[in-house]
Nucleic acid binder design. Structure first.
Lengths: 222, 222
DNA sequence: ATAAGGTACATTGTTACACATTGTTCCTTA
DNA sequence: TAAGGAACAATGTGTAACAATGTACCTTAT
C-alpha cells in the first residue's frame, strides 16, 4: 500500500489485453476456424495465469469469436452456409432499420455532416482495394468501416453497437471463407450501394446484402 | 480417477447455476437497478469460491444485465429514457425484419403451424393478465413470450437468438421502470397487434413498438 | 471555508497450486 | 465387432495470497 504515482491513467486489464491479442490473431486468420484454444497452453505461451486466460476467453466467447462448451474447451468459431445466412439476416435487420431511421429523419438528402463519414469510409475502402487488393483481411476491415458508417447515420448508439459487435464475426467469416469476390468488385458494389441508399432506403440495403450473401456463401460458385 | 457412475447427464456448471439464480433475482426486482454485486459477499452467501462468482458475473455482464467496470465492480444495469429508446429501436429492427421475412414467405396468411405458437403465447398472456394482474414481472414475462413467438415465425435462428437476448434487458427495464400500463391494456394491445401483423407486416410492428415506447418511457405521463 | 495531498480501506485483478469433474481416446475383454 | 474400463487431457472449482485500482476520510495548507 505504498503511495501511488499516478502519471497516466491505468491501461486495460491483462485479460482485456490478451483478448485483444487473441482477437487480432483470430481475425488475421492466424488462428483458423475450429482451432482449439487451450487455457494452459496459452497461459504458458503468454506468461499469464490460467485464471487470466479464462477471463480473456470469456470475453471472446461473449463476442462469439469462439465457441465454448463446458468441459470440452473453446474453439475458434467456424461457419456453415446457415451461419452466413443468419449473420446476413441480422445485419440486414440492423442496417435496414438504421437506414430507415436516417431516411425518416433526413429524407432523400442526408446532410453533409451525416454523409461525410460514409464518404470517408468509402474513400478508405477504395484506396485499400487499390493498394492492398490481395490483403483480404485489410479489405474486409475497410469494407466493415463503410457499413458501420452507414449504420451510424441513424444516430442510434444501440443499433451501432449491435452492428459493430457483428464486425468481428463478419471479419472472421470473410477471412475464413475466402470468397471469390475481388477487392475491385467490393469497391464497385459499395460505390453503387452508396448511390442507392438515400434514394431507395431499406430496399437498397436488402438488395445489397442479398447480393453479398450470394457472393460469400460457401456454396457460391463462380 | 475412480470409475464414474453416469446415470444422468451432467447438469450445468456451478457458475452457470449461479448466473441463473442471480438473473432471476435481478429480473424479479429483488436486486434493484444500480445494486452493486460484490464478489466476496456473494461467494460467502452462496458457499462458492470467488473464482466461480467471477465466472457467473461475467456471464451476466455479457447479457448486459449488469455493468462491469475494471476495479470498480459490477452493478445491476439501470436505465434512462435514452436506454429505452435504444432498446426499442433494436427490438424494432429485429422484430420488423422477422415479420418481413415471415410475410415474404407466407404472404398475408401464415400457416397454422406458424401461428399456433403465437396464439398459444397470446392465450398465456391473456390468462396471466387475468390471474396475475398485479404481478408485473410475470405479466412482463408472458408479454415477452408473445414477441418471441412472433419473431420465431421468421424461422431465422439468429434473429430469434438476438431477440431472445434482449428479453432479460426488457424484463429488467419493465420491472424497474414500473410503467403505468395495466395488465389488461397489455393484453388488449397485443391482441390488436396480432390481428394487424399478417395484414400489415412491418408497419404494424413499428406502430406497436412506438406505442410501447411511449407507454414505458420514464417520462411517460399518464 | 475550501482545496490539495496523503492514508486507510474496499474491491477487483492476477498468480499459484491443488483437486474435482467431465469428455475423449485407447486398450482389453467378451 | 461391440462394450466396458482405464488413462489421459482439459476444464471447472476451491483456497490463499498479493498487486492494482478506486473510494472515502482525515490532515494540512491557503
Amino acid at each position: 500500500m505504498s503511495p501511488r504515482r499516478r502519471e497516466a491513467p491505468p491501461g486495460p486489464t491483462e485479460a482485456a489485453r490478451l483478448a485483444d491479442d487473441l482477437r487480432d490473431r483470430i481475425l488475421s486468420g492466424e488462428l483458423a476456424a475450429g482451432t482449439p484454444l487451450r487455457e494452459q497452453a496459452i497461459a504458458s505461451d503468454e506468461g499469464l495465469s490460467r485464471h487470466t486466460v479464462r477471463t480473456a476467453l470469456a470475453l471472446l466467447s461473449a463476442e462469439r469469436l469462439v465457441i465454448q462448451e463446458p468441459y470440452r474447451g473453446i474453439r475458434v468459431t467456424s461457419f456453415t452456409a446457415e451461419d452466413v445466412r443468419g449473420l446476413q439476416e441480422l445485419r440486414c435487420a440492423l442496417e435496414a432499420e438504421a437506414v430507415r431511421l436516417a431516411c425518416a429523419r433526413y429524407g432523400q438528402s442526408w446532410p453533409d455532416e451525416v454523409t461525410a463519414p460514409v464518404r470517408a469510409a468509402m474513400a478508405e475502402l477504395e484506396s485499400t482495394a487499390r493498394e492492398h487488393a490481395r490483403n483480404w483481411p485489410v479489405v474486409a476491415a475497410a469494407h466493415a468501416g463503410v457499413h458501420r458508417a452507414i449504420v451510424a447515420a441513424a444516430n442510434s448508439p444501440r443499433l451501432q453497437e449491435a452492428y459493430a459487435r457483428l464486425d468481428s464475426e463478419m471479419l472472421l467469416l470473410l477471412v475464413n471463407l475466402r470468397p471469390n469476390y475481388s477487392a475491385e468488385e467490393v469497391a464497385n458494389d459499395h460505390r453503387d450501394y452508396l448511390r442507392q441508399i438515400q434514394a431507395d432506403g431499406e430496399g437498397a440495403v436488402r438488395r445489397h446484402l442479398d447480393h453479398g450473401t450470394q457472393q460469400i456463401s460457401p456454396r457460391s460458385s463462380r
